[in-house]
Design a protein around this nucleic acid. Sequence first.
DNA 1: GAAATTCCTGGTCATTTTGTACAGTGCACC
DNA 2: GGTGCACTGTACAAAATGACCAGGAATTTC
Lengths: 164, 164
Amino acid sequence: MTSGEQLEHSDQTLDVLDARLLLLLTDEPRLGVLECSRRLGVARGTVQARLDRLVGKGVLTGFPPALDLAAMGYGLTAFAVLEIAQGRRQEVSDGLAAINEVCEVHATTGQGDLFVRMVARSNADLQRVIDEMVDVPGVERLSTSIALSTPVPPRVRPLLERIG
Amino acid sequence: MTSGEQLEHSDQTLDVLDARLLLLLTDEPRLGVLECSRRLGVARGTVQARLDRLVGKGVLTGFPPALDLAAMGYGLTAFAVLEIAQGRRQEVSDGLAAINEVCEVHATTGQGDLFVRMVARSNADLQRVIDEMVDVPGVERLSTSIALSTPVPPRVRPLLERIG
DNA sequence: GAAATTCCTGGTCATTTTGTACAGTGCACC
DNA sequence: GGTGCACTGTACAAAATGACCAGGAATTTC
């Protein structure tokens, strides 16, 4: 059954087997190739080949350790939308990247030019981080909101499940 | 050198060695315990004990496969801020969670009540996803912005580096 | 239709890693 | 001085890995 079940998707990057494999690894990331092959009911070489292929395609980029920032003392997550001076995106981005607590920055359409995710140890700490951000040259306006809860934590699963 | 270098941090959840270990695993996630011990210049048992402890503390939650959504065909990432009817957060969250393309939802302070990260295959596809979100009962206002670029991709490194 | 290609299977092999255990050592604390 | 704790270095059996290869089935190509 090389591949014949997925007639509905066009740019079929992922195979049913690929999806099942990734799903399996999503649930139990520490599984070895051998275990995977057993669970999936295929030969070990197949799993090995699939993984290599997925990495080659750039779909699977690695298995980074997942850290719980809250458990590390960074109990606060906050988001900031900032407006910046025209044509200084690069400069501002660099300035933000230099702040340790800044965990993610996106340039977006709409009024806010940059969107930032950051963490802090406490409210006071957050204040400090925000101050640092405001001080970045080129930042004109900054509005922050604190994450109170996370009804849907980062996930990819549904996208995979639709294939497998 | 059990632990004696980190005098500046108070709720010292993480040790210098912990940080170095996590940093190492961040860079090369597929390393085994033995390799780590070699790289760090400590005994294998030590690395093993540290990892167990980190997992026990809840700091290290696993090694999920990192997938490149763009390589999977989801080239578009977008953010949405939505305002919802009073007291229907749970209901709305569930509704959003049922949409495959919704990758993350946070409840936040400020005007926007919920903050959503989503992906799509194309502009048309994004339109569909947005429509689905608007149709979720309890959603009153929704404003979307598309991620044009990501100057700072999700990272934890700086937080670790400050310790190690 | 026949040939070539591709992908999976199921097996082998030597090498490496894991899990687990243990005695020994340096250090902090009482 | 004694106790507890974390790290070291070592050991050994069991398991997994990486690298092969021949054969079969399905797909594509001519």
